[in-house]
């Protein structure tokens, strides 16, 4: 389903490089979850000694990394499902201008989420907040992952805002768009 989207320009390429690094961390977290679950079950069955730290490590950090570190990479590669069926029936300019507004609002939303995570990060770090468990994991790490993921996602949304606005104003394609759902030979026929 997901293809690799070549960046349309230098700004996008720079962002894509950061996104790739985060996506690698996300993928590694996913692999780590798999190995930890298997190790946990094996330890429990074979040695009657389950890993006491697996539950919190996975829930508190690794799943958070899987989600937030993949957020922007997935957007860049058109992995976030969109309804792309009406899109191509809307004329070029209004479509891009509307998308510019949509991504502007999205930028604001992602920035607000990231900002709130930053506030929690600061407070948790200064108070040395930890969960009550055999290993008292600090909570600021989770907030850091949220803030970092949202920062890159915000930048990607801002980039899309400008890209769609420029495309709409110039009438050209200056930003990455998902491949159309129709196929080239019969592109004329849409859905009924």
């Amino acid at each position: 389903m997901m293809q690799s989207q070549p960046p349309a320009n230098g700004a996008s390429a720079l962002l894509a490089r950061i996104e790739s690094v985060l996506a690698l961390l996300s993928g590694l977290s996913l692999g780590a979850i798999m190995l930890i679950v298997v190790a946990d079950v094996a330890m429990r069955y074979v040695f009657a000694a389950p890993l006491s730290w697996s539950y919190n490590l996975i829930g508190l950090y690794l799943m958070v990394a899987v989600f937030f570190f993949a957020l922007s990479d997935t957007l860049h590669n058109h992995g976030h499902i969109a309804i792309d069926i009406f899109q191509h029936q809307i004329p070029h300019r209004p479509r891009h201008l509307a998308l510019a507004v949509g991504y502007l609002l999205s930028s604001g939303l992602m920035a607000l989420i990231g900002w709130q995570a930053w506030l929690r990060l600061k407070s948790a770090y200064l108070n040395d907040d930890r969960i009550a468990a055999v290993i008292p994991w600090p909570t600021w790490v989770a907030y850091f992952i949220v803030a970092a993921g949202c920062l890159v996602m915000t930048l990607r949304c801002v980039y899309r805002t400008f890209g769609h606005a420029a495309s709409g104003l110039t009438g050209r394609d200056l930003v990455e768009t998902p491949p159309p759902p129709e196929t080239e030979p019969q592109a004329g026929e849409g859905a009924e």
Binding site: R44, A48, P50, S52, N56, I131, A133, V134, P136
Partner: peptide, 25 residues
């Protein structure tokens, strides 16, 4: 002793360990 017990939270885990049982989350 040695029973695997479903336990939640830090203090209860320590309590489970104190009686020689194994806390499982």
């Amino acid at each position: 002793r040695n029973l695997k017990l479903r336990t939640t939270g830090g203090a209860k885990e320590i309590a489970t360990t104190k009686i020689g049982a194994v806390p499982v989350q």
